[in-house]
Design a protein around this nucleic acid. Structure first.
Lengths: 230, 230
DNA sequence: CGACACGTTGAGTTACGTCAATACCCGTGG
DNA sequence: CCACGGGTATTGACGTAACTCAACGTGTCG
């Protein structure tokens, strides 16, 4: 159970699905929730789990992934703060959910949360909004990895991260740190580590970006990046 | 406006989102809906539309797709009967929605439908259920497309269609017609027409499937197909 | 400082795309 | 009925982008 004053001080208070609730409703919801921290690499849900939790991400980042027979990981989505994770109404989890960086979660037993959805219509609409947006984002990801050169995929991913790191909506941050390792970028784009690394090298040689250290990224020429993607 | 007795006779009455509503609520909803037929290739929504409709698919099949700068189509989802289409709460449509075969729709003005969602909580939860399921399906598609070889992708797609054509849930139909042209399969899998055609040829030469005519498909060896996919 | 994970770079190979020719299916009209 | 034509599918030859394998850097933390 989460003390109500935690909600009042919550950093994603305005963006998360619970923002749609009244004070009283949120207090009710807080009663079934707990906080939990995950360290980088730690799993929240494994594929196949039949009684897993759902959660709002408060800080950090998560990945949603499948692991196939030969152990290869395929990332199918990233979760950012204020995002919601956990498949409601599904009997078993379809994917693994793992922390990309140390993360703080507002955790709910799935069954309790489903009941809350039935009880608070505004929670249902808020989740529907978010789910609809997630769906559009996932489809955009298909679009990106569907039928493009590795260079376009890497360019697109850099734009996605740059937009995420920007404070202006839709703008691209000039400098930021990549939140993923090369291996994770490869798992997300359907490429190999080496190919990702090479394409980043090409972009740098063309003067479009500049690497600073291994994760640092400076975007010098946004229009060129955008042109590569569409 | 749809006469209420149409709903009573509707073939997807039990599966569509409106099944969650009471008789009275459904009558209300029917008042803002209309029926429409789409012929193969006809568009329901174009990407960028700012005041588009949403709909429940009664019969036929739709594709949700993006078209990039050079005119290449990338299919990001298929819609089957009882499916819901149209992004609620989004200012503009992200994708094109087009009929794959002649289709019958139960059509609603988007704004009116959004109001209905706010008014009927059970509609919101039903849409949330469907949206959550769509999200899982879309992620499974990413998983398939991200897969390494073209052979595995084609095998996976044949399994998907085979399962869809089967009457037993999760079983694979022994014979069915592919609902997509080679070009559409290619647009969905991120391959070319030629590659799709070749991989189907390989599967046939290995005795795993048998082509009958251009769309007909006979699945001889389901385990082999499944093995290729995972 | 050394260990270890992560990242880069290179050489050789393979799978897929491109281009092009041919075959098939089906509706239309001679 | 067959001939024609357009859309669709198959097949082949060839080039190239991305993968594989392998060696070598680089950053980070004890």
């Amino acid at each position: 159970m989460i003390p109500t004053d935690h909600c009042a001080a919550c950093s994603v208070r305005e963006q998360a699905v619970c923002a749609a609730l009244s004070e009283a409703e949120r207090s009710e919801l807080a009663r079934i929730g707990t906080h939990r921290t995950l360290h980088r690499g730690e799993a929240l849900v494994d594929a196949g789990d039949d009684n897993y939790a759902c959660a709002t991400l408060i800080s950090g980042a998560l990945k949603i992934a499948a692991i196939d027979a030969d152990g290869t990981e395929r990332i199918v989505a990233l979760v950012h703060p204020a995002g919601f994770v956990g498949e409601l109404f599904a009997p078993r989890a379809h994917h693994h959910v793992t922390a990309l960086t140390d993360s703080l979660l507002c955790l709910f037993p799935r069954m309790d949360y489903e009941r809350a959805v039935e009880r608070y219509p505004r929670l249902a609409t808020a989740l529907l909004r978010r789910s609809t947006a997630d769906l559009a984002e996932t489809r955009a990801l298909i679009d990106l990895i569907g039928r493009r050169t590795s260079l376009a995929r890497v360019a697109g991913l850099i734009l996605i991260f740059g937009r995420g790191a920007s404070n202006t909506p839709c703008g691209v941050a000039a400098r930021f740190d990549l939140p993923l390792t090369r291996g994770e970028m490869a798992a997300l784009l359907g490429l190999t580590i080496e190919t990702v690394s090479r394409q980043i090298g090409i972009l740098e040689r063309r003067g479009i970006i500049k690497r600073t250290g291994t994760r640092g990224m400076e975007v010098l020429d946004v229009p060129s990046l955008e042109e590569m993607v569409d």
